[in-house]
């Protein structure tokens, strides 16, 4: 595989990677919308969900896109037109940039960069600007409040998210996501290395903090105050209709998939399954599928929580972040550091 890739020029390799990234993000977002939003929530609520478009309603999303493409494009009269139209671009571009750090196999990666997870965390915070732009540009009182709420929430939960990752970085001794996977594949838990060292075991506190903060970053229930329909109509999306609304909506699911993939790489061993040689060429083929399987499991958790819990109050949200998650994440860093140096 390395031989095949190294013979190609940079542009050819990059075209392959771009194609793979395109397929990955569309496939993952499509599957998540169908499996989790259309079907899982339906079964949880004792109904069948979409059944007409395609076998078991599997083409429902295509039908939805076809419908939304034909909807009239309405920009509110008083809106700041440029900011209003630019906001979906910012949000979706930041999602696409997140994808770039994910490794799918020993040679199946988009970039192999030593900044890795740090780059991902930096890029993920760009979507805050997009959401604030949507809230501001809409020129609607509810949109503005929703946008500001979203900003306050996303910056509050970015800290636990960042600090939970530090524990993993200490254990893996690198920020490169590819090497984090290898560190888990070749690792040992206090001398026992039969299944490697998936960091979910040795960084369990970090994993829990990461998942809670991720839920908030994705503004999924119980952290969906920015789009609380009983208080703010639909928050920063109120004035959006038709295709632009669909873009925000799909972006939400794509971001859920990409964030879950980052969590899978950090804590569940990414594309690696125990019992095989991580340098095996086989992983270039099954690696992306393994990663996809882990993503489906993690997003299942995210949406399970989403459809089960009621919404928190806004003051409880900030309290949980600042008084509980941040100190806990800092304690996790210190304990991990001590264990790393002393043991």
């Amino acid at each position: 595989m390395i031989g095949v890739l190294s013979e190609l020029s940079y542009w050819q390799v990059t075209s392959i990677r771009v194609g793979a990234g395109l397929v990955a993000v569309l496939l993952v977002a499509g599957t998540l919308v169908y499996a989790h939003l259309f079907k899982m929530v339906s079964f949880m609520q004792s109904r069948l969900g979409p059944m007409e478009a395609g076998p078991y309603g599997s083409l429902q999303l295509m039908a939805e896109i076809g419908k939304f493409l034909q909807k009239e494009d309405i920009v509110p009269r008083r809106a700041d037109r440029f900011v209003f139209k630019a906001a979906p671009f910012v949000v979706l571009t930041s999602t696409f940039l997140l994808l770039v750090v994910l490794p799918g196999g020993p040679d199946a990666w988009f970039i192999s960069n030593d900044l890795g997870i740090y780059l991902a965390m930096a890029v993920s915070s760009v979507s805050v600007i997009g959401i604030l732009m949507a809230g501001w540009g809409s020129a609607s009182k509810y949109s503005l409040l929703g946008g500001l709420r979203a900003t306050g929430q996303l910056i509050a939960y970015e800290l636990p998210l960042l600090l939970a990752v530090v524990g993993v970085v200490i254990q893996a001794e690198t920020m490169n996501l590819q090497e984090i996977v290898l560190a888990q594949a070749n690792g040992e838990i206090f001398g026992w290395g039969a299944i490697g060292n998936p960091f979910i075991i040795t960084q369990f506190a970090g994993f829990i903090i990461f998942m809670i903060a991720m839920q908030a970053e994705l503004t999924q229930t119980p952290f969906d105050m920015p789009v609380a329909e009983s208080e703010l109509v639909t928050g920063y999306m109120t004035e959006y209709s038709g295709l632009r609304f669909l873009l925000f909506f799909i972006g939400e699911f794509a971001t859920a998939g990409v964030f879950s993939a980052i969590a899978a790489v950090l804590f569940l061993g990414g594309w690696y399954v125990p019992g095989l040689d991580p340098a095996d060429n086989l992983f270039n083929v099954i690696g992306p599928l393994v990663l996809f399987g882990k993503v489906v499991v993690l997003t299942f958790l995210v949406f399970w929580v989403r459809f089960t819990f009621p919404r928190f109050r806004e003051d409880q949200l900030q309290r949980l972040a600042w008084k509980f998650l941040v100190p806990l994440a800092l304690a996790n860093i210190v304990v991990t550091g001590v264990l790393k140096v002393v043991v």
């Binding site: 571009t93 696409f96 988009f110």
Partner: peptide, 16 residues
């Protein structure tokens, strides 16, 4: 590497 990152960013905008 960063050129690749830039290309992916541009791709996101192009899809939208």
């Amino acid at each position: 590497t960063y050129l690749t990152v830039g290309i992916f960013g541009a791709l996101g905008a192009v899809i939208v």
